[in-house]
């Protein structure tokens, strides 16, 4: 490690290796990001600790290659998140790797990696050759690559990157369907929907509590408010019936129970209440 903690200004084998692999990438128009489906190949590159390693995992179904910079806020955020992601994905065939160009002092790179707590190998990109090949002009950027070394997608930094990268990995692993992935990438509005329904339900709940407390009149009022919000709420009709019955209005109760049963033949409270009304249990 100590040797690698010097400034990476020296010529690095990576440049030659990657430039030699110039023909390995195909299909990308100059200046545009590599398109999904681009066939990539395995490369052996120098690592931060002074050794060499293969960029892609041999048995991985999914490779995640992060291009980052030390001393950059967004890179620090993504590195930290990928450290958590590594732990979450432990045991799954996912291989993580980080790539940094050789323009930064090794100590700075090591500090960034240590602060984030990532366990993945960190590769040194001599002369930014690999970054150039991958068309990485912004950092951080995460390449998701399948087991056959085809590029799935480049994930740029966004506020939602933690969810996006996990979703992309899980989709590539076959754990998420296309529709599930789409829901995560394009989430619907997070504000509560169907407020009318929710309000009706709350009036019903209050009516139940009032009824349990023996307050028939207020329970009936609250049930009516629920029905104002949702006339098709069988439970509210049934509860209104129960409240009216408790208050002695069996005729009104019967009507309410019938309304509940018209909406839900199996409504237990309405069936029971109607039985009690018919049996003369209540006037």
């Amino acid at each position: 490690m100590s040797g690698a903690l010097q400034t990476f200004r020296r010529p690095v084998e990576a440049a030659a290796l990657v430039l030699a692999a110039g023909a390995l990438w195909c299909g990308a128009a100059d200046g545009e990001p590599l398109p999904p489906g681009t066939q990539l190949e395995q490369l052996t590159l120098p690592t931060l600790d002074g050794g060499k390693a293969e960029l892609m995992g041999r048995n991985a179904k999914v490779n995640v290659v992060l291009f980052f910079r030390p001393g950059q806020e967004f890179s620090a955020l993504v590195l930290k998140d990928l450290a958590a992601c590594e732990q979450e994905m432990a045991g799954k065939p996912v291989h993580f790797a980080a790539v940094v160009t050789d323009q930064y002092p090794g100590a700075d790179v090591q500090a960034a990696v240590t602060a984030a707590g990532v366990k993945m190998p960190v590769f040194v990109d001599g002369g930014a050759a690999l970054s150039g090949r991958y068309k990485v002009i912004q950092n951080p950027a995460m390449a998701v690559i399948d087991g056959k070394l085809k590029l799935v997608v480049f994930v740029p930094y966004t506020k939602n990157h933690a969810q996006v990268i996990r979703a992309r990995i899980r989709h590539a692993l076959g754990e998420l369907t296309d529709a599930e992935l789409d829901t995560i990438l394009h989430p619907p509005s997070q504000q509560a929907g169907g407020l009318e329904g929710a309000a009706a339900h709350r009036h019903l709940k209050l009516a139940e509590r009032l009824l349990a407390a023996g307050n028939a009149e207020k329970a009936a009022d609250s049930a009516r408010k629920a029905l104002d919000k949702d006339p098709n709420l069988a439970d509210a009709h049934a509860l209104l019936g129960a409240a009216l019955a408790l208050g002695g209005d069996c005729a009104g109760a019967r009507k309410a129970f019938d309304a509940a049963l018209a909406l839900d033949k199996q409504n237990a409270r309405a069936l029971q209440g109607r039985k009690e009304c018919e049996g003369g249990a209540k006037r």
């Binding site: 506020k159 939602n160 969810q163 394009h186």
Partner: peptide, 13 residues
């Protein structure tokens, strides 16, 4: 109350 988007956002930024 909660969100599926970072920073409890209502929608994507």
């Amino acid at each position: 109350h909660g969100s599926n988007i970072e920073s409890l956002l209502v929608k994507l930024p």
